[in-house]
Design a protein around this nucleic acid. Structure first.
Lengths: 201, 201
DNA sequence: GCCGCGCGATACCGGTCGGTCTATTTGCCG
DNA sequence: CGGCAAATAGACCGACCGGTATCGCGCGGC
């Protein structure tokens, strides 16, 4: 239990509103982007008064930040990282498995692309908090790949990870442009990259 | 001369406003995205009355369409396609030259990323005219790559072009995320892809 | 020399934006 | 039971959204 405050407050109903808000923000923001969803829409979809929303989050930007954090928790950590590690113990296969995972993702009916990229692209001001946060989440994914690359005993994990992530981002965008086989095609390139970078221990 | 209408109209001052509008739209839309720029901002930056703007373009969407067309003319055709063809006659070098060109682009002070991708990502409705147009422009780029790939006698030009374009888009996004060497890293992967796909005649 | 039209300026339209305020209800706690 | 915190609905704010209407000016063609 996440220690609501110095002194224990409500028990059952409390936190319920906050959770509904954040869940709704996750759905709407990830599907339509942040700019495209107004706070009124958000509050009504969450079944919550606007004032309740503003009690929990000082501004829409803060809510956007919370959305990105949740996205990292659900998408990056729970979905990407964990599933990849559960699939196989062979590091190279784990890297390639990213694209197998992507393949299923791309075929979802309402494929929403990567929220971090969408957020990044829709905030042109480099000093904006939300953009900076999105950037951090992109780098968190890179950190993950660096680790996998190191386990795969790649020559230069940092460089490799940058290239691998470019492949990932490229196929995410390609899939959003309607290319159904983007993941498979990216996987083929990934295999090439892996072959050229791998060194036997 | 583009045949202004059935009967000749004004000579010198006419079309001036239209040109200013479109040039301003190009600057502002490519830098900040379409949603982020309002028509009032646009008109005032162009030094034009709002009504003049609406006389030339029925709606903001139509102006956005014109912006994308201009982007294809200036960016895709004039910059990308022509420069690539002028650099060398060797098809494989032309393909790799894309990333050399990108390298300079990424280092521009106000690097604005790819307008087609940004437009695509900020329109989630797949039936929206502007999104569909952006998609068309992305495919125009692919057509260009397919041609270069065919000239390079690649095994499967369509598949190759899709993979090559994923590399391009991936490094465009990576550069937007602040990765200064994205073009060089993408070029390395491109060389791998080229080596594996090339067949000697 | 006058008419027409492209243009600029400005006010306006209904709607939505992010954000605030108030008055009221609800429900847990000591 | 009384008090307090959380949540509610809804009005309200100034600003801006895309888009329209009106009017007056200046210039070019007949």
């Amino acid at each position: 239990m996440p220690a609501r405050s110095p002194r224990s407050r409500r028990a059952a109903p409390a936190g319920d509103a906050r959770e509904r808000i954040e869940r709704t923000a996750y759905q709407l923001f990830s599907q339509h982007g942040i700019h495209a969803v107004g706070v009124d829409t958000l509050a009504s979809h969450a079944g919550v008064a606007k004032m309740t929303l503003y009690r929990h989050y000082p501004s829409k930007d803060d809510l956007a930040l919370a959305f990105l954090r949740r996205r990292e928790e659900l998408w990056t950590r729970t979905w990407l990282a964990n599933v990849i590690r559960d699939r196989t113990r062979k590091p190279a296969e784990r890297l390639l498995g990213i694209f197998d995972l992507f393949d299923g993702w791309f075929r979802k009916a309402n494929y929403e692309a990567c929220s971090f990229l969408k957020t990044l692209l829709e905030h042109s001001d480099p000093r904006h908090r939300v953009r900076i946060a999105a950037l951090g989440h992109v780098q968190a994914i890179r950190a993950l790949i660096i680790q996998l690359a190191a386990e795969a005993r790649v020559r230069n994990p940092e460089r490799f990870a940058l290239q691998w992530q470019m492949l990932m981002m490229g196929c995410i965008v390609a899939a959003y442009a309607g290319e159904r086989d983007a993941a498979r095609r990216a996987r083929e390139v990934g295999r090439l990259l892996l072959q050229s970078e791998a060194r036997r221990a």
